[in-house]
Design a protein around this nucleic acid. Structure first.
Lengths: 234, 234
DNA sequence: TCTCTTCGAATTGCATACAAAACGGCGACA
DNA sequence: TGTCGCCGTTTTGTATGCAATTCGAAGAGA
């Protein structure tokens, strides 16, 4: 058979990792939430060992903070870390743009276009909207075929949503959709500098929307139940 | 007491991580070497659990490859991955240079100068020389105070030494020392563009020294013994 | 009422045990 | 002689158990 019978691919540790990451990015687990090994393991039907491995991975990605002897929490980047992160992100996404400008295939253009449509369509759903906006950037990175670049952009985009969760205004990501379209146009036209400038502006405008809310925490087991089924866990 | 009695800081898992990382960067463990959990644990006096954690960390950093059910090996980046890696590195180190240009404090200049002296002095020792050359770049990154930038540059520099180990000419890193001095001069003078260009050239020249050797593997326990004592392990 | 101490419960750190998978050698068969 | 498949050995995957640490609440002393 061409495909493994395991529906989600990868081992169970990876599945746990994906569940938690997804939950964090959707802001179902907000920055600062505690991530106790045994509650998570219990809910997901795996032992602490696997949860631990997932947490280590997530901490390497900067999504969770591992406090020795005191457990893991969803990372709470400071505002300054946020600013620095966007600086770094800019340096890398500039490379993405330079690599891609004028070189997009018809297929890639199609993918990006329909993604932008999806973003349009999901404007209302806050969590969805945030995730899709991020995915546009990771999609671009993906197309460079540069493994390290892809990985770092992915990480930075993920962390960005933490920053936004902490310091962003409620509707901050929505206005970005049209900017994505513009950027795509410049990329297709091969106008590298304009595209880079646009990307810079795009990221910059995201950063300069500061300080706002965070709603309360929910019970972790409850929150995870939705994600668990999607990964075929317990 | 101000300091913990633990000489190396951090938990034992981190110590294992540092031992392996150091051994890899020194090319005492060359790309492709197998990293069996129990041999390592036995030699270092810890259980497989901790070794596993270290290996997961290293794989996140791209230094080891984790093959499901088949064990871990020191990563063997392809030549193309290498090229891409240096592209990414360039994008980030450009940001480092831009951030630092004209802003180095007297103290920082001192640190960098004496580091360059140390590089001069260590020209003969291949392993030392490679490590110091890398450290110059991580030192620069460190001075930006940008956490994500620091982390990525560190990772990329580390991986670069794998690339060099696989595809570099024997004496490739030595000529770099003078370039480091030049770069420092430009940075002090605040000549941002020239510094950036120099950095670009510097990294580019490293990449365009291609394809060569790798000597045989040694016994892993034997190799680790030196590193073990440095971390206070068994 | 406030602070400090003490003790129990909850949680992490780490080792170990056992199951499952991959590797390697030997022999059957062609 | 060469190849295939079987089985013991080795190594990884995962759960679990116990010790150590932290957290929190109840109580003593001021």
């Amino acid at each position: 058979m061409a495909k493994k019978e395991n529906e989600t691919g990868g081992g169970r540790a990876q599945a746990v990792h994906r569940v938690l990451k997804r939950a964090i990015l959707d802001q179902a687990l907000s920055p600062g939430s505690k991530l106790p090994e045994d509650s998570i393991g219990e809910r997901l039907g795996v032992s602490r060992t696997l949860v631990r491995e997932a947490l280590v991975r997530l901490s390497e990605e900067g999504l969770v903070e591992l406090r020795p002897n005191r457990g893991a929490v969803v990372a709470r980047p400071t505002l300054e870390e946020g600013r620095n992160l966007f600086l770094t992100r800019m340096a890398l996404e500039r490379l993405v743009v330079e690599t891609l400008s004028g070189k997009l295939t018809q297929e890639q253009i199609g993918i990006l276009s329909s993604h932008i449509e999806a973003e349009e369509a999901a404007k209302k759903e806050r969590a969805q909207s945030i995730r899709l906006a991020g995915e546009f950037h990771t999609l671009l990175a993906q197309m460079t075929n540069n493994a390290s670049l892809i990985r770092y952009v992915n990480e930075l985009v993920a962390r960005s949503s933490l920053i936004l969760a902490l310091y962003g205004r409620p509707h901050s990501s929505e206005c970005a959709v049209s900017e994505h379209q513009e950027l795509l146009d410049k990329l297709i036209a091969g106008k590298t500098d304009e595209a880079a400038a646009l990307m810079a502006h795009h990221l910059d405008s995201v950063t300069t929307r500061a300080l706002l809310p965070t709603d309360g925490d929910r019970n972790i087991k409850e929150v995870l139940s939705a994600y668990a089924v999607a990964e075929g866990l317990a």
